[in-house]
Structures are given as C-alpha cells and as structure tokens.
C-alpha cells in the first residue's frame, strides 16, 4: 500500500508541469524564481481505527514539493515539518505545595484550547529551521504551541513555569512527541514523514499539517483531517458510560445484584 502510494505520488509529481520545468530548464543562478513552490501531502487513509490493546504506531505521511528550486534543494534550503494535532480542549495544570507537612494542590492554571496530543516530525531541529518568534507566530513545535491562560492571572511570573510544566508532562506521558529526523526526502522532491502515534492517543478529529520552509521562511502549508476512531468492546463501554449513564449505572448495579444473589444461591449451605 505504501509503495503503491509512493509510486502514485511520484507519478503525480513527475506529471506536474512545475516539476518538469525545474527538472528540465535550469533556473539561472541568482535569479529569484517567480513560481511559488507547492506542497502536497497524502496518507493511505483518512481514518485510523484503533483497538484498546493499541500500543502506539507510526503513521506515514507522503508528500511532494512542486516547483522546487534545484539549487536550493541541493544545498538543503528546504525544510519540511509535519505535525499531527489531536482534538483541542482546555487543559488544567496544578501545582502542589507542602501545607502543614502534606502535599496538596495549591495553584492551578487553565490553558485555552490546546491539542490533547501533538506529534511532530521535521527534517531537522525546528529551532534551527526558523527563529523562535516566527515559530511562535505560526504555532508549530511543542515549545511554540500557543498556551494562553484562561482568566486573570495575578502572578504573571508563574505563567512560564506552568507552561514548561505542561510541555514536560505532555512529553513524559507520550502525548506530545517529536522526531527531528522524522521527515526524510526519498528523492529530490518527495518526502516521507513518520509521525508517532502514542498508545494513549485520544479519539476524535485530528489534523495533519505540513509546513514548507525555504531558507527559514514559511512559504507554504497544507492540512488534512484524520479521524481516529477507537473500536472494540472497551470503547463501546466508554461510549455507553458517557451517553447513557443512567442505564449504564443500572447495569452495574444489576451485575452486582446477580453476582451477590448468585453467590448466596450457589454457596447456600442450609
């Protein structure tokens, strides 16, 4: 399937007029190309079904550069970053402090709409691709995702600490991942990105985003939705618990009644 897709993309890239023009006619040195570079991405699926025993996997995204400048390609001036962003939700970070000898949560901060999971693959360390302010602007990279606290924060000095803690915790539980050599060019204009899907990936609508940098400038980006669906009996249970909580609760009680009653019947000794 992957090989087939690769071939397909290769054919598409070859057939595109831009590719032919750059391959055929040499662009004179020093003359800025007027044709904008294009970026295409594709995956073998738009939906991933995972079962409860899912232990994590790699998702391969194929992509092609069109209208790429041969010279810039040769000296490695093109960089590609591919990310997979999970569904967004609020996230609350809490900090413990010792109060009368006991550790308790004393401080908290809630961040607005941050992706629950985030996986990044790039051709090299993203901070060496572009400057931090510009990456912050685009919001690409774990250290550059916008983390805006909700509400009024009296002690602005602690925002940085909470942001760092958030990123560190997300990285340590595997929901945020990065692979700075995850994007590899398989030919001069075709690339393959390997994104790591963590075992605890949330279900819902994810978004694959690809960014093309030329000499540290973002010149093109593409996105593609990817649905992650959890399947199996375990997911059916989770759905039931959230969608029909009353019936679910009744079933739990019923099982308890049957188990308790059954035991008293089976083990009855009088």
């Amino acid at each position: 399937m992957r090989r087939f897709l690769l071939t397909l993309l290769l054919l598409a890239a070859l057939a595109s007029p831009g590719f032919v023009s750059t391959a055929g006619a040499q662009v004179p040195f020093g003359e800025a190309s007027t044709v904008k570079e294009g970026l295409e991405i594709g995956a073998s699926t738009s939906e991933i079904a995972i079962t409860s025993d899912f232990r994590g996997a790699d998702l391969t995204i194929f992509g092609a550069l069109t209208n790429a400048d041969e010279l810039f390609l040769a000296i490695g001036q093109y960089d590609v970053v591919v990310t997979l962003e999970g569904p967004k939700d609020y996230a609350t970070v809490r900090r413990k402090e010792r109060v009368f000898g006991i550790w308790m949560n004393t401080d908290s901060m809630t961040f607005e709409q941050v992706p629950e999971s985030y996986s990044l693959a790039s051709t090299r360390l993203i901070d060496s691709i572009d400057e931090a302010p510009s990456l912050n602007n685009i919001g690409v990279g774990i250290d550059h995702l916008p983390l805006n606290p909700v509400g009024y924060i009296p002690n602005s000095g602690s925002i940085g600490e909470f942001r760092n803690a958030y990123r560190r915790l997300k990285l340590s539980n595997g929901l945020y991942q990065r692979d700075t050599s995850g994007v590899r060019f398989v030919s001069s204009s075709l690339f393959r990105a390997s994104l790591k899907l963590p075992a605890n990936i949330p279900d819902g609508m994810h978004m694959v985003r690809a960014y093309l940098f030329k000499s540290g400038q973002l010149i093109n980006q593409k996105e593609m939705p990817l649905r992650v669906v959890k399947t199996g009996i375990e997911q059916a249970i989770t759905d039931a618990a959230h969608e029909q909580p009353i019936q679910y609760g009744m079933l739990c009680v019923l099982i308890a009644v049957i188990t308790g009653w059954g035991a008293s019947l089976i083990f009855r000794r009088d």
């Binding site: 909580p245 679910y248 609760g249 009744m250 739990c252 099982i255 308890a256 188990t259």
Partner: peptide, 28 residues
C-alpha cells in the same frame, strides 16, 4: 446501589469491567 447510579450519572467514574472482576472474585 444508589451511589453507583449517581456516580455513573454525574462523574462517569464507575468501571464496569473492574467492578465485575472484583465482585466475582470477592463473593467467592
């Protein structure tokens, strides 16, 4: 039984798989 129902309805925190394993082992 009532607490199980209310917890299931408000906090979605009753784990039926865990409860069943515990109950069967427990009564035996």
């Amino acid at each position: 039984a009532y607490t199980t129902m209310v917890q299931a309805a408000t906090n979605y925190s009753v784990d039926i798989v865990l409860a069943t394993i515990l109950m069967v082992a427990g009564v035996i």
